[in-house]
Simulated assay, not measured.
Amino acid sequence: MARIDILHPHTRSADEARAIVDGIAAQLRDRYGVSGAWQGDSVQLSGPGLQGQVELLPRQVRVTAELGFLLSALRGQVEAEIRRVLDERLD
Score class of each variant (00 low, 15 high):
residue 1 M to L: 13
residue 2 A to L: 09
residue 2 A to M: 12
residue 4 I to C: 10
residue 4 I to P: 09
residue 5 D to K: 14
residue 6 I to K: 08
residue 6 I to T: 05
residue 7 L to W: 09
residue 7 L to K: 06
residue 10 H to N: 12
residue 10 H to E: 04
residue 11 T to L: 13
residue 11 T to D: 12
residue 12 R to I: 05
residue 12 R to W: 14
residue 13 S to I: 04
residue 14 A to C: 08
residue 14 A to R: 11
residue 15 D to P: 08
residue 17 A to T: 11
residue 18 R to A: 13
residue 18 R to V: 11
residue 18 R to P: 06
residue 18 R to K: 06
residue 19 A to Y: 01
residue 20 I to A: 10
residue 22 D to I: 11
residue 25 A to P: 02
residue 26 A to E: 11
residue 26 A to Q: 15
residue 27 Q to V: 12
residue 27 Q to N: 10
residue 29 R to T: 11
residue 29 R to G: 02
residue 30 D to F: 12
residue 30 D to T: 05
residue 30 D to S: 03
residue 31 R to Q: 12
residue 31 R to A: 10
residue 31 R to Y: 03
residue 33 G to L: 09
residue 33 G to S: 02
residue 34 V to R: 04
residue 35 S to Q: 00
residue 35 S to E: 10
residue 35 S to N: 00
residue 36 G to K: 01
residue 36 G to F: 01
residue 36 G to V: 01
residue 36 G to I: 12
residue 37 A to L: 13
residue 37 A to G: 08
residue 37 A to Q: 15
residue 39 Q to G: 06
residue 39 Q to D: 11
residue 41 D to M: 11
residue 42 S to C: 04
residue 43 V to S: 07
residue 43 V to D: 01
residue 44 Q to G: 10
residue 45 L to T: 06
residue 46 S to R: 06
residue 46 S to A: 14
residue 47 G to S: 06
residue 47 G to K: 09
residue 48 P to A: 07
residue 49 G to E: 03
residue 49 G to W: 06
residue 51 Q to R: 04
residue 51 Q to G: 03
residue 51 Q to T: 01
residue 54 V to G: 01
residue 57 L to W: 07
residue 59 R to M: 04
residue 61 V to W: 03
residue 61 V to F: 02
residue 62 R to D: 12
residue 63 V to N: 05
residue 63 V to I: 15
residue 64 T to Q: 10
residue 65 A to D: 03
residue 66 E to C: 09
residue 67 L to E: 10
residue 68 G to I: 00
residue 71 L to I: 07
residue 72 S to M: 01
residue 73 A to E: 10
residue 73 A to R: 14
residue 74 L to E: 12
residue 76 G to M: 01
residue 76 G to E: 00
residue 76 G to L: 14
residue 76 G to N: 09
residue 77 Q to W: 15
residue 78 V to L: 05
residue 78 V to I: 14
residue 81 E to P: 06
residue 82 I to G: 00
residue 82 I to H: 02
residue 85 V to N: 10
residue 86 L to T: 10
residue 87 D to H: 13
residue 87 D to G: 15
residue 89 R to T: 03
residue 90 L to N: 13
residue 90 L to M: 09
residue 90 L to C: 05
